[in-house]
């Protein structure tokens, strides 16, 4: 769906390259994530790809068409939710959606149905200036879904949300992926990235040192062991066993048969561990 070759970008009037010859692909129907600390260039990449920033170097193809030759109708099937909610504060939630629906030629979704999805139906007639940041984030998110986008750009979609509302948003994202929507999201939350993204790219100082599937990253960088926590004579104990030949490992079988098992976990590395290991940088900046 998206092919990016040697993309570079510097903001006008500055020498510093924010994006340094990055290349990646996003396949149709996948959730692809950029994971990296603040200021790494994640949002800039999204802004280039959704056409907000011009004057970039390299090639960006979307559905085989060069981004620089894209017509305005390109936006009929694009959805963008920004990191900071940008809404008409003097309009109600419903009016915000209705007004933005008027900017599309194609048929748009029922705003009330969208409000219901993020539990804002009770606030449909409230002016947005009275909304909390979390409510604005949710409204801004569903606004991006008005035109039934085939390609969705999400910039830090769970930023500023409480765990309950973050869960709602993540469920919607997973549901959209099931429906075949291609999603490009940026985040610095490793849990979100791990849960939502099929493939990930680590971004550090405008470069992409790692692009891989989330599963493979965990397997490659994790220990191939199983950790068993159990109780023996009333005391909590733990042991690790190699995954290879685990079924025929007598010590493992012995614990399973004789002890009270508390937990059993494979020892995949967390994305944060992998990020630090690969990039040498902390994720939470």
């Amino acid at each position: 769906m998206i092919q990016v070759q040697n993309l570079s970008y510097s903001y006008p009037g500055t020498e510093k390259q924010v994006l340094k010859n990055i290349s990646f692909e996003i396949n149709e129907g996948e959730v692809f994530g950029f994971l990296g600390p603040s200021g790494a260039g994640k949002s800039t990449t999204q802004k280039v790809l959704n056409g907000l920033l011009k004057g970039f170097g390299g090639t960006v193809l979307i559905n085989g068409t060069d981004l620089s030759e894209m017509k305005r109708s390109f936006y009929e099937k694009i959805g963008v939710a920004f990191e900071f909610p940008n809404l008409y504060l003097k309009l109600t939630a419903l009016e915000n959606l209705q007004l933005f629906a008027s900017f599309f030629k194609s048929e748009t979704r029922d705003p009330e149905e969208l409000l219901k999805m993020v539990q804002l139906e009770g606030d449909r007639d409230t002016r947005v200036e009275a909304f909390s940041k979390g409510m604005k984030m949710r409204l801004s998110f569903i606004r991006a879904l008005l035109n039934r986008p085939e390609l969705l750009f999400l910039d830090e979609p769970t930023a500023g949300l409480d765990p309950g509302n973050a869960r709602i948003m993540k469920d919607i994202i997973l549901d959209l992926q099931q429906q075949g929507v291609t999603i490009f999201l940026t985040t610095h939350h490793m849990d979100d990235a791990g849960e939502l993204c099929k493939r990930l790219a680590f971004m550090v100082e405008g470069k992409l040192p790692v692009i891989d599937s989330t599963q493979d990253l965990r397997l490659k960088h994790g220990k191939k062991t199983v950790r068993v926590e159990y109780k023996e004579n009333g005391l909590a104990c733990a042991e690790e066993f190699p995954i290879d030949q685990l079924a025929s490992n007598p010590a493992f079988s012995d614990i399973l048969n004789k002890q009270e098992i508390l937990t059993i976990h494979t020892q995949e590395a967390s994305l944060e561990d992998i990020f630090i290991k690969v990039t040498g940088q902390q994720l939470k900046q």
Binding site: N50, G51, L52, R72, S73, Y75, E76, I78, V80, F82, F84, N86, L87, Y88, L89, F100, F103, F104, K105, R143, N147
Partner: peptide, 17 residues
């Protein structure tokens, strides 16, 4: 200031509309 123009820029109406 409210980022509205940016939000409209990524719709078919666009900044010129």
């Amino acid at each position: 200031d409210g980022g509205i123009i940016t939000a409209i820029s990524v719709t078919p109406t666009g900044k010129s509309g």
